[in-house]
């Protein structure tokens, strides 16, 4: 009997100990000045999609790769001068907004479409979009579906609470068509539902569909995307409202990748470009001027971002270019001079 009491006591003791050990996990001091908090922590916390090949997905070894993952790295390069000082936090669609609101992550680069509703009611600020896309549908080739109108009465797989979910409701009701949604939070389960034939179509941002087709299906040629883009989905990074300083930094990092491509400063030639006589290049790379210091980071912030991660083109081609599993036309995502809508504000 005595022993039983002792066992109980030791249980209590170990529990206390366990709680103590677990709670010493580093607490982020975030006192309105996000940049200071990031520097004090020694790493940037970046909220990414748990598994979206092309944008952000861990490989078998747990290393994150993707377009949005690279933007996280670029931010780390700007803040620390070291693109590896970033910790990726996978957030489900349910956790993405609470995640940024509560300070679990410093920035959200998680396939979030910028909308006014989210901007004004979620306490977020959106950076300039880094990827323009729209709702698309992936269908089975043998289903005979050729266009949106063929989907009348179809079963469609989609993620809960996504803008896709709302777009489809509007699209179908505008055309007087009906559909049955299958809504699943877990992206892998959602894709499996489509692949195994539970749904006639998988609805997602069009940019995400080639990744699904290439990686999640056994025979990619059995699946195709419906022609056309059915909504505006400007995918942008998001930060909390109330820290203009940090917002500026994220915004100008995005612009630096745009402007870098526009001015022909790429990962490959950035070192030579340091000698460029072009005053705009000199200002951007921090050879002259003090814009970096005024933003609160080192003078060579844009140089570090482009050197370690690349300009927009470098990043794009790395994940969506020819030879990658997911080849995507640049389409709207070209420089304004090339007919796209990427328009970086002048860095000067």
């Amino acid at each position: 009997m005595k022993d039983l009491t002792k066992v109980f006591h030791s249980g209590v003791a170990s529990a206390t100990l366990a709680v103590m050990l677990l709670s010493v996990a580093p607490a982020a001091a975030e006192s309105g000045d996000t940049i200071k908090a990031i520097i004090a922590r020694g790493e940037l916390l970046c909220g990414v999609h748990p598994s979206r090949p092309g944008f952000a997905a861990p490989d078998d070894k747990g290393n994150w790769a993707g377009f949005e993952a690279d933007y996280c790295r670029a931010l780390a390069a700007v803040v620390f001068g070291d693109a590896t000082k970033v910790r990726f936090v996978a957030l489900s669609s349910q956790q993405r907004f609470p995640g940024i609101q509560s300070g679990e992550v410093d920035v959200l680069a998680r396939n979030v479409s910028a909308t006014m509703g989210r901007d004004v009611s979620l306490g977020l600020n959106f950076t300039p979009p880094i990827f323009y896309t729209g709702t698309g549908f992936l269908v089975h080739v043998d289903s005979g579906i050729e266009k949106l109108e063929d989907l009348d009465g179809a079963t469609i797989c989609m993620a809960p609470g996504s803008t896709t979910e709302q777009n489809i409701a509007s699209l179908f009701s505008a055309r007087g068509m009906s559909y049955t949604p299958i809504v699943i939070e877990d992206n892998k389960q959602l894709v499996a539902n489509y692949v195994e034939g539970r749904c006639d179509a998988l609805a997602k941002d069009k940019a995400a569909l080639p990744g699904v087709r290439a990686i999640d299906t056994e025979n990619p040629e059995e699946h195709k995307m419906l022609p056309g883009i059915f909504s505006k989905e400007p995918l942008a990074m998001a930060v909390r409202q109330g820290d203009d300083h940090w917002y500026d930094l994220v915004k100008w990092t995005v612009y630096a990748t745009f402007v870098g491509e526009e001015m022909g400063v790429s990962q490959a030639n950035v070192d030579e470009m340091l000698q460029s006589p072009d005053p705009d290049v000199q200002i951007m790379l921090g050879v002259t001027g003090d814009l970096g210091e005024k933003m609160g980071v080192s003078q060579d912030w844009a140089y570090q971002a482009i050197k370690q991660v690349g300009n927009y083109e470098d990043i794009y081609l790395r994940h969506f270019g020819p030879g990658t599993p997911i080849e995507l036309d640049r389409d709207l995502n070209q420089q304004w001079v090339d007919g796209g809508i990427l328009y970086g504000f002048p860095i000067k």
């Binding site: 609470p98 809960p160 996504s162 979910e165 709302q166 939070e185």
Partner: peptide, 23 residues
Amino acid sequence: AVVVGYPDLVNIGNTMMNQTGQA
């Protein structure tokens, strides 16, 4: 139900939470 995709109370509530952001 939210795991299998049956639209029960939690599943609908989850969508609502995602859309409105009012967790």
